[in-house]
Amino acid sequence: MKKTTLCLLALQFLMFPILNAQSAQPDFMRSIGKIYVVVAVIVAVFLGLVLFLIYLDKRLTKLENQINQHD
């Protein structure tokens, strides 16, 4: 759980400077009718789902360990 929170925080701090750097030269994020904004949004949704998968994976591992201890 703690690691997931850390991951989320890390993502925020990693992503925002990257996006900031891109919009500092207004030509990239705003070029070709701002299509890269749509790309960034889709990537954000995908990363969010992946982070959630990692969280589910950890919960499942915990459950598996409990079952193993039980046997």
């Binding site: 919009s23 994020m29 701002k34 904004v37 960034a40 949004v41 954000a44 949704v45 969010g48």
Partner: peptide, 13 residues
């Protein structure tokens, strides 16, 4: 995710 995507969209509009 809605808030995050909204923020990215807001930055550029």
């Amino acid at each position: 995710l809605g808030l995050l995507t909204g923020a990215i969209w807001a930055k550029n509009t």
